[in-house]
Design a protein around this nucleic acid. Structure first.
Length: 484
RNA sequence: CGGGGCAUGGUGUAACGGUAGCACGAGUCCUUUGGGAGGAUUUAGUCCCAGUUCGAAUCUGGGUGCCCCGACCA
């Protein structure tokens, strides 16, 4: 049947990803533009996604033994200056407070672009002995970076994230921490957001300002560009020296601590939207969907009849709720069932239950999966509770498999630079290729193809090969892609 | 920040320098409800600041915001 779309018509995802992206965010009521350049408002539905992510990740962080704390939003400029690479990396995007209480203040205060400096100023006070180590703290907060070009969720001037900051007695311990955290992030992305990706180490030119080593999880979006989904940094002693975070070790000697920091931001919501969405709108993985099941009544003639529909729907809702499923009933009478179907499809609710005359008289229910829209499932009433959970699990699983398939189809092994250029011009995606690890080759490749080094995969092995660009000897295959 | 485009009710659009119109939405009432319901009725607008002009949505300058392409970034 031909649909006559008049309201909330979505732009085709495949036709124009970036228009679709903005459109679906506004129409699904995830977010809206704020009256401040580059800033966005998280609307309740969008914020609920973030709250679910926070809840899950927060418990994972705590399970690792890291505690939450909170540090100030404002950072004295002098503190921020202490680590040279760090200030150099961040100074172009700082928001600075110069006036307070109507007067110019003597030392400008910076709104945190990240909290290393303010946190480490405190750490130097708190750490005295090897017995104080490891010190592992996380904070959930907002960040401001004066970005030139903004994009809902993916790049806004203010964003929300968690940042973990740890101090260790040895470099080895710090490195282990980075690995542990990256494993946690990978699990989070795969198991909850259903997003596969590449985990690995950054090249020198791509690492965090002030880190000696950066690890990241890179995910693929439908247009072949990739997103850095989160990262963890081995800071070495780059910060502990200028910030004087030192301790007396067992041997009586004073040593500087070895540090790590790691973060995951609301950018991940942008990735989630892009990876799973389709022409009908959002498709949310059940594990993080604010509403997992939507019940839509199909009213008819007569008060008694509609009352029956209402009470039956309510009974179904309660039954499902008992199993801990997030379920909502849309009893609005001003909209037709068809209108509601479309509405909740845009919002990406994983499972829909329709309740009308057939359901209240029969012994079955009608269910529709968001990831397979053209199929109406008939479920026996008594099997509902089991089936709902089973279907939610299947949807979660299916979304991951689909994304994984797309990732596999868009990951290429390439040894020839001409072919590399051709892929970057056409489908893009991830390219695995030998690189001699000379930044000059890296820069040239970027200039000529827009592809940058995303990471050296964790699973990479030592092999013999030739650099994609200069043909000199190379020992490892790196992952290239065009970044968002 | 460099290059390009755009800005009209809540949304999408129209109007030669001369009456701001249409559709959707929203409000009220009635009839409807298994894939974006219908009728009646009401409602609301030229992004901001200057300038040109008898007269500006329209022309000029500046600002702001959004989109696209570059540089930067989680």
């Amino acid at each position: 049947m031909k649909k006559k779309f008049e309201k909330k018509e979505l732009i085709n995802k495949s036709k124009d990803l970036s228009d679709w992206y903005t459109d679906v965010i506004l129409k699904a009521e995830l977010a809206d533009y704020a009256p401040i350049r580059g800033c966005m408002v998280f609307r309740p539905y969008g914020f609920a996604i973030w709250e679910n992510m926070q809840r899950i990740l927060d418990s994972m962080i705590k399970e690792m033994g890291v505690s939450n704390a909170y540090f100030p939003l404002l950072i004295p400029y002098s503190l921020l200056k202490k680590e040279k690479e760090h200030i150099k990396g961040f100074s172009p995007e700082l928001a600075v407070v110069t006036h307070g209480g109507g007067k110019k203040i003597s030392e400008p205060l910076v709104i945190r672009p990240t909290s290393e400096t303010i946190i480490y100023a405190m750490y130097s006070k708190w750490i005295k002995s090897f017995r104080d180590l490891p010190l592992r703290i996380n904070q959930w907060c907002n960040i401001v970076r004066w970005e030139k070009r903004c994009y809902l969720f993916l790049r806004t001037m203010e964003f929300l994230w968690q940042e973990g900051h740890t101090c260790h007695r040895t470099h080895r311990e710090a490195k282990e921490e980075v690995e542990r955290v990256m494993r946690m992030y990978e699990d989070f992305y795969k198991d909850f957001l259903a997003i596969p990706g590449f985990l690995g180490r950054k090249s020198v030119s791509e690492k965090f300002a002030g880190a000696c080593d950066t690890s990241a999880y890179e995910i693929l979006t439908p247009n072949g560009k990739v997103l850095q989904a989160c990262s963890a940094h081995d800071l070495g002693q780059n910060f502990s020296k200028p910030f004087k975070i030192s301790f007396q070790d067992r041997d009586g000697k004073t040593k500087y601590v070895w540090q790590t920091c790691w973060g995951l931001s609301t950018r991940s919501i942008g990735g989630l939207i892009m990876v799973h969405g389709d022409d009908q709108g959002l498709v949310l993985p059940p594990k993080i969907a604010p509403v997992q099941v939507i019940i839509i009544p199909i009213f008819g003639k007569g008060k008694d009849f509609n009352q029956k529909i209402l009470s039956f729907s309510n009974q179904i809702k309660k039954e499902i709720e008992k199993k801990g499923v997030r379920v909502k009933f849309d009893g609005r009478t001003q909209y037709s069932p068809g209108w509601k179907f479309n509405e909740w499809e845009i919002k990406g609710v994983p499972l829909r239950i329709e309740i009308g005359k057939d359901e209240i008289s029969g012994k079955f229910l009608t269910l529709v999966r968001r990831d397979i829209l053209n199929e109406r499932l008939k479920i026996k009433n008594e099997k509902l509770k089991v089936k709902v959970q089973e279907l939610l699990d299947k949807i979660q699983d299916n979304l991951y498999k689909k994304a994984k398939k797309f990732l596999r189809e868009h990951t290429h092994e390439v040894s020839n630079y001409q072919k590399f250029k051709k892929i970057m011009r056409q489908t893009k995606g991830f390219i695995s290729a030998f690189w001699c690890e000379d930044p000059k080759c890296e820069a040239k490749i970027k200039e000529e193809t827009k592809a940058t080094i995303r990471c050296l995969p964790k699973k990479a092995i030592e092999e013999k090969g030739k650099c994609l660009y200069c043909l000199k000897r190379a020992n490892r295959k790196w992952i290239f892609a065009q970044a968002y």
